[in-house]
Design a protein around this nucleic acid. Structure first.
Lengths: 117, 117
DNA sequence: CTTGACTCTGACAGCGCTGTCACAGTTTAA
DNA sequence: TTAAACTGTGACAGCGCTGTCAGAGTCAAG
């Protein structure tokens, strides 16, 4: 699959797909003429990257648990570090969620203030 | 109150307090010599800005409902637009929260995958 | 008066992400 | 074969935020 198709299928721009690669998140084969040739399984990978990214995670961070993202089954070497990173990321996600909730509460209060004068 | 004190009291850097002003969120008096002179009430304002910002809101957006942020009681003119903006922001906050939750779920799944081979 | 801490402005730079443009080569379909 | 659509690379720019640095003025305490 060429980059245009992957882009259409995932909703991630061609620009960003190339950027993912530059950041080490994707490593597509190349055709004889140099075109990127993606495995169909990478659709899933890209979607996961997209989701994690929309949760406020950095590409550099996502790369840390790339084996998981790519669904490469059980991980060997960096298993412990991986677990640590994952726990830390979950913790940060919880923190972000809390901040977001606080922020939302403030907005709701504003709304009440201007609706009941 | 001068900028250094406000910074210490709020935990917002001097740099950012000046930036808030440049973005139209704060308008401190000036001493004869040009020093910024903040009202004590602005501590609250800055804290709210900080919270909204940590919820992913842009300063330009926060400026939209500045009267609320500054707690200036009932708002007159832009009341309807303000309500619209607030509802929209709450909606976006909910969206972000949903994305964040999805992202968190993915992380938890990764964790399960590598913990049970 | 002098010194050290504080403040002012303005500029530059970096972060991570994203779009766009230019220029060149490739593929596909008419 | 030719034209349109696609892909490649590299560079530049912008977003919003943030730190830092330089050069100058101000303030408070010794």
């Amino acid at each position: 699959m060429k980059i245009g198709e992957l882009s259409k299928r995932t909703g991630v721009s061609i620009r960003m797909l190339r950027y993912y690669e530059a950041e080490g998140l994707l490593k597509p084969r190349r055709t004889a003429s140099g075109y990127r040739d993606y495995d169909a399984a990478e659709i899933r990978t890209v979607e996961r990257i997209k989701l994690l990214g929309s949760g406020g995670m950095t590409l550099a961070t996502i790369r840390q648990f790339l084996p998981c993202v790519r669904g490469e089954g059980p991980v060997f070497e960096p298993c412990d570090e991986l677990r640590t990173v994952l726990h830390e990321q979950i913790r940060q996600a919880d923190q972000k969620a809390e901040k977001l909730a606080q922020s939302r509460r403030i907005l709701r209060n504003f709304l009440h203030e201007i609706e009941q004068p």
